[in-house]
Design a binder for these strands. Structure first.
Lengths: 197, 197
DNA sequence: TTTGGCATGTAATCCGTTACATGATTAG
DNA sequence: CTAATCATGTAACGGATTACATGCCAAA
């Protein structure tokens, strides 16, 4: 008989997933997300702490207290049931969330502002993609260097590759769009129009 | 003196933007979004109707009633102030929203399920990207055919191109990831393991 | 001594979807 | 006759961020 898979928020699974890496505090979870999967996921404390509390009550994680130095820390670990719930969720078809791309929306209506303004938006984006490409390259190196024997490595590289290919494509798009906008700008404001020398 | 730009939700601007295309009802706005910018934006009635009400009160749009046949329609049009507010927003740096890619999250932790399950996730995604690529090609044709003289055309093509390049890149990624997962699967379940003939 | 990082948590608020309520018109 | 589409709106709910409150410890 099929188990009724309780519907949880993705945050629940995000927290469970992080705890498969190692037992962690809420603070650690936040930090680890920020330094590993930030390019495709984020969580705030406002989500993490209440989630940990609930998952503990539901026995998907256990909590133990620790005081290293002065401040008390709550270390959470995933239980067998937690792993089961996570695995069940992983195999369910991933739900794409409704897209909301502010940059594209602005460009879609950019006829209502000077072309140079649209070009500025694209240029900011281009610079960001360039940084992203560089960052991905560095992360790749680091993964090979420091996680060569990690059983998760193959999967991490797959997700990294997604980021790389996407960023490279969007970088190409930025360049292309930038050129088109420059032409529009030249057409809209031919020399002399704005009183340049 | 710099005008204090009131902070509105992006929905406000989405509605204003749509109304630059032509005066429309709330229903029309929803439908137009769904058939034009759906690949990078969505809005629900629950957002649109209250927004129209508020924008009317704030004089960024005007409302007139019309009865074509029986049911009454409320047609909204953008005002000069509305256009101004929109233009002001368009030039402000676009805010990328915090990423949340469920597919990547699942793949990141996919070691905890059989590789074939991860491959299934990727395959679903690949099929989707393939459909997206085809759809973008069709849209491109339609834009050239039916909006050849539309002053917005150049901008629409730029946003379309973003979708195209992104979908193509993600299609390539899907193929690559699919292959890797197949190898992992072969390694995890060599012939004989599961009792095949 | 003061700043920054470690650490936990709650409350207020916002954003957005879904469900609900209602009803007319039109095409099959 | 009935299903789909047109059409407008509200209410309930959930998900997520931000701000707030609190306080230790280490380094500058």
């Amino acid at each position: 008989m099929a188990v009724a898979t309780r519907d949880r928020s993705t945050t629940d699974y995000a927290v469970l997933g992080m705890l498969t890496l190692r037992p962690m505090s809420g603070y650690d979870i936040r930090a680890t997300i920020a330094e590993s999967v930030a390019y495709f996921w984020t969580e705030s404390y406002g989500q993490i702490y209440p989630t940990l509390k609930r998952l503990t009550k539901e026995r998907l994680v256990t909590r133990r207290s620790e005081r290293s130095g002065g401040r008390e820390r709550h270390i959470y670990a995933i239980t067998a049931e937690g792993r089961e719930a996570l695995a069940e969720w992983i195999v369910r078809p991933a739900q794409p969330r409704p897209p909301r791309n502010e940059l594209l929306f602005k460009l879609f209506f950019a006829r209502h502002v000077p072309p140079a303004e649209a070009a500025a938006q694209v240029e900011r984006f281009r610079a960001e993609q360039e940084r992203a490409v560089a960052r991905f390259r560095a992360v790749e190196q680091e993964l090979y260097d420091r996680h060569a024997n990690n059983p998760d490595l193959a999967y991490w590289l797959i997700t990294l590759r997604y980021g790389q290919l996407e960023a490279e494509a969007l970088l190409r798009w930025s360049a292309e769009a930038g050129e088109i906008l420059q032409e529009l700008n030249a057409a809209a404001a031919p020399r002399g129009t704005r009183g340049e020398k």
